[in-house]
Design a protein around this nucleic acid. Structure first.
Lengths: 92, 92
DNA sequence: GGATCCAATACCCTTTCGGTATCAGGCCGC
DNA sequence: GCGGCCTGATACCGAAAGGGTATTGGATCC
């Protein structure tokens, strides 16, 4: 599992479509599709239901979504904690 | 920044030596050394002071360490949240 | 000053990741 | 029902990343 994978998942969950999420992420659809599938594989549980209209979050997906957002938020916080400081001091 | 990089950083911070951390992580020393360096590069701040005795955490490194642990904890929680359920409890 | 620890670098190879082209299947209009 | 049109999935290929071995550079300790 990678951070990119988590970001991809969130985008797909929010868009409801792999193709639209791909556009938003500036990647093409196939890698995104594969990434989601391999994430489900690693977690051992399907996160989406594939419908002819797009991707529909399953309960497990909903659970993972909140975790995913928290993880990405933490990463963001970590970066912010160091970026503003000119690396001179950080007692945080 | 990748999750592996974050795990590497935590190991080095805890061991105080790249070589020892490498042993613990079951990777060799050079990739680990590079990974830490590229992390510092990306964050725009040195996290360690290189001494002839090993790696010593700088204040920025200490700050990042707590964030790193939280991130890894969240990832762990996300995995645990899905693993126990064998993905069959969704209908009722 | 030579031996000894340490991380950093050079170089190579394997694996991963992203892109293009194409397929497969459900839906809708006709 | 058949053809076009959505959707995601697969095949294949090339570029990039990541890890390994061998080696270097630098500081300490005797």
């Amino acid at each position: 599992m990678s951070l990119a994978q988590i970001r991809y998942f969130v985008a797909v969950a929010e868009e409801g479509h792999v193709g639209r999420a791909a556009e938003r992420l500036h990647v093409s659809q196939p890698p995104l599709s594969r990434s989601i599938r391999s994430l489900e594989d690693e977690l051992g549980a399907p996160l989406f239901e594939r419908t002819p209209r797009g991707m529909r979050l399953l309960p497990a997906g909903l659970t993972f979504l909140s975790h995913a957002r928290r993880i990405l938020g933490e990463v963001d916080a970590a970066v912010l904690a160091l970026s503003p400081n000119d690396r001179r001091q950080a007692s945080s």
